[in-house]
Amino acid sequence: MEANKPIGWYLKEADKRITAFLNDEFADLSISRHHWLIMQRIAEQESIITWEFFQEIKSTVNAQQFGEIIQSMLDRGWVTVSAEDKCAFTAEGRGAYQQIGSIQQERSGRMLNGITEAEYNLMISVLNRIIVNIG
Rank of each mutant, 00 (worst) to 15 (best):
G109E: 05
T19F: 05
N62V: 02
G114N: 10
K5D: 07
G101E: 08
E119H: 04
M111S: 10
E13F: 02
I69F: 00
G67A: 12
F53A: 01
T90L: 09
Q71K: 15
L74W: 01
H35I: 00
N133K: 11
N4S: 12
A43T: 05
V81S: 12
E25P: 00
L37E: 13
A91C: 08
I57K: 02
G109R: 06
A83S: 15
R129K: 11
R129W: 03
I38S: 01
I38H: 01
D75T: 07
I38A: 04
T116F: 00
W78M: 06
L122C: 03
S102Q: 14
S72T: 02
I48Y: 03
A27C: 09
L37W: 04
M39D: 00
G101T: 05
G67H: 08
I38R: 01
Q64F: 11
R107P: 01
Q105A: 13
K12Y: 08
Y120P: 01
C87N: 03
L112E: 06
T80D: 13
I70K: 00
N113M: 10
N62T: 03
L74G: 05
I70A: 05
A63M: 14
H35W: 01
A20W: 08
Q40M: 14
I103Y: 10
W78S: 03
A91E: 14
M73K: 01
L74E: 14
G95A: 06
S125N: 05
A118P: 00
R33P: 00
S32L: 01
H34L: 11
S30H: 15
I124T: 09
T80S: 14
Q40E: 15
S59F: 10
V61L: 14
K12R: 15
V79S: 05
F54I: 02
G109K: 05
F66V: 04
A88E: 13
A91N: 12
V61K: 05
E2G: 12
K12N: 14
E13H: 13
Q98A: 10
P6R: 06
S30W: 06
I7C: 09
L37I: 03
D85S: 15
I38G: 01
N113W: 07
K5R: 15
A27F: 02
W51M: 14
S82H: 08
S125H: 04
A27T: 07
I131D: 13
E46D: 15
F89A: 07
Q99H: 11
M1W: 09
G67R: 11
I31N: 03
I134A: 11
M39P: 02
W9V: 07
E56C: 07
I134G: 08
G77E: 08
D85A: 15
L37H: 09
S32I: 02
T50I: 11
I100G: 02
Y120M: 10
E25K: 13
Q104C: 10
I115V: 11
L112K: 04
